[in-house]
């Protein structure tokens, strides 16, 4: 018997596919739809202390094999977002994504997410297009450790840290998460990118810099998970450019216990979670793997 049941630390999901933060998760109903389409869990929109409209349009562009976005973390603020969480947590596992500028911000947000019924919090330490947040706090190992430590001391639910590939010290930052008591690492967020319209002789996105996602970044994400697997012993959740079951298996075999899908929802709809899981199940039968954990990190052996 093959089983898609997946363990990430103490958490158990029916399958290893998780909706990545920032995709179809601004509202409770959209997260419910993704759960009903077969995702093992969903990660909420990244939510901060106060309402944030995000960056002006244009903040999204399709490019070869991917997309560049600079949404700028739009969200209604943690208090208003409680209504959305309430709708979603009734229907499945919801991981609350939060962003802040200091350990104190993260603590307040994590406590709220816990009170809303989130099964874990995901610390967004990696947004590449929000000044003073994300990448700006997530590339300093000391800062990362102090944020993780503070949140761990404040909540009982698992604490995941989503990291950026826009650094040459990713394993060091991963270590900082582990040393701070973090329960899992999510890698990778988008890669810093710019698109220019030659006819206008200027960048297209209003924020100029955005984050590249989609198929283009998959090999980078797989490599990041590979490096982290060598550096830490806490679970890793792989994310970046997964479109089909083979992409997901690359992440798992590089060392990921579970994976997230985001941009593929654009072309394949929320049904992509079910399609990918079916593909993994078929593969496992064919190649004699009985559980997801049998495959985690096997490419290193």
């Amino acid at each position: 018997m093959t089983s898609l049941k997946t363990e990430v630390g103490d958490l158990v999901f029916d399958n290893p596919s998780i909706l990545a933060s920032g995709i179809m998760d601004e509202t409770g109903m959209s997260m419910v739809r993704v759960l009903e389409c077969g995702a093992g869990a969903v990660v909420s929109k990244s939510v901060g202390l106060a309402s944030n409209p995000g960056h002006a349009n244009p903040n999204f562009l399709e490019v070869t094999s991917g997309c560049i976005n600079a949404m700028g973390l739009p969200n209604p603020g943690i208090d208003a977002y409680g209504d959305e969480m309430k709708i979603a947590v009734d229907k499945g596992n919801v991981i609350g994504s939060i962003y802040g500028a200091s350990p104190k911000d993260f603590v307040i947000l994590a406590e709220k997410m816990q009170s809303y019924g989130a099964c874990a919090v995901e610390l967004n330490l990696s947004c590449p297009h929000a000044k003073g947040y994300g990448i700006e706090v997530g590339t300093d190992p000391k800062m990362v450790k102090s944020i993780v430590e503070a949140v761990k001391a404040a909540v009982d639910i698992p604490v995941w840290a989503k990291l950026t590939p826009n650094t040459h010290i990713l394993p060091e930052i991963g270590k900082a998460v582990e040393d701070g008591g973090g329960d899992a690492i999510v890698a990778i967020n988008t890669l810093k990118a710019i698109a220019i319209a030659p006819e206008f002789a200027r960048p297209i996105l209003s924020n100029k810099v955005g984050g590249l996602s989609g198929a283009a970044i998959k090999p980078i994400g797989v490599r990041a998970v590979w490096d982290l697997h060598n550096a830490v012993s806490i679970p890793i959740i792989g994310v970046g450019g997964i479109t089909n079951y083979r992409d997901a298996l690359e992440y798992i075999m590089a060392g990921a216990s579970a994976f997230q899908i985001g941009t593929a929802v654009m072309d394949h709809g929320p049904e992509v979670f079910n399609t990918v899981c079916k593909g993994i199940n078929k593969f496992m039968k064919r190649y004699g793997y009985r559980s997801i954990s049998d495959m985690v990190g096997v490419a290193h052996e």
């Binding site: 995709i23 179809m24 601004e26 109903m29 959209s30 929109k45 999204f60 976005n69 949404m71």
Partner: peptide
């Protein structure tokens, strides 16, 4: 915002108006 079904800004109940 995105216009093509990823960002979730245009949700009406569980439907993406854009996609």
């Amino acid at each position: 915002k995105c216009g093509c079904g990823v960002c979730g800004a245009c949700m009406m109940d569980d439907k993406r108006v854009c996609k």
